[in-house]
Amino acid sequence: MSEQHVYDKYFRADKLKTMWCPGCGNGIVLQSLVRALEETGTPLEKTVVISGIGCSSRAVNYLNTCALHTNHGRAIAFATGVKMANPDLKVVVITGDGDCTSIGGNHFIHACRRNIDITVVCINNNNYGMTGGQYSPTTPTGAMTKTTVYGNIDTPFDICDLAGAAGATYVARSLTYNPVHLKNTLKKALDHKGLSVVDAMSDCPSLFGRLNRLGDAPTMMKRWAEIAVPLAKAKTMTEEELAGKVVYGEFTDRKDRPEYTENYAALRLKAQGGK
């Protein structure tokens, strides 16, 4: 037993090592999530992790919980069914920027609107990794990808703005560069009653990094020291100073909206004559 690590129980040892590229941020997010699950005391038996399609979505393969690896973009819709059928379950969605905000964008905003008690962890690496590095809804304007070879002309989504505007009650951004912050953010998200979103900024050195000449994985990681700005500091900076920066921290932490499964429980009582 002395060989057993406290986190071993969360992983399916026979499925490791992961399929991710060297330097990929997915492993850091997965490890941070496991630490957060441990520290919040979430029981494995009552945890269901659901993902869609993409590199990030493969995270569910390594977790020793009940899990559904579903269709592209649909994780949140499956998760909604699971949570509504059994509100006692802790439901976590692991998704990526394309899965969550492009093909799954409609499910994402409607889950935010309902404020259903699900934690959405979006691993945001600014491109589609699984299919080889095409541009996603979070690819910065001007960036190079396999389908923006002349530079990206699209304006990206800010996932936190999108989630907050749609009604999510806990919205935060963190980054693989700061795993302690990431773990603590995930803990708050897991403990939050309502729809919580963590936009976890990550790196894809194999594709986005290479196509944009951002250097190898350590170089990309160090880059965050220059571009990541905590929210409190960002508030003191001008628009010009913030250009090209990524602001992280808590954007929304509301307690004023009712949670959806609790609302439905109240509806049931009404339907049953208030007994």
Binding site: I50, F78, T80, G81, M84, A85, H107, H110
Partner: peptide
């Protein structure tokens, strides 16, 4: 559950079924 579209409706029933 009234879902946002039929994609979500089919997904939600499968999630609910898995949950019993």
């Amino acid at each position: 559950m009234q879902m946002e579209d039929e994609l979500a409706a089919a997904a939600a029933i499968l999630g609910a079924s898995a949950a019993g």
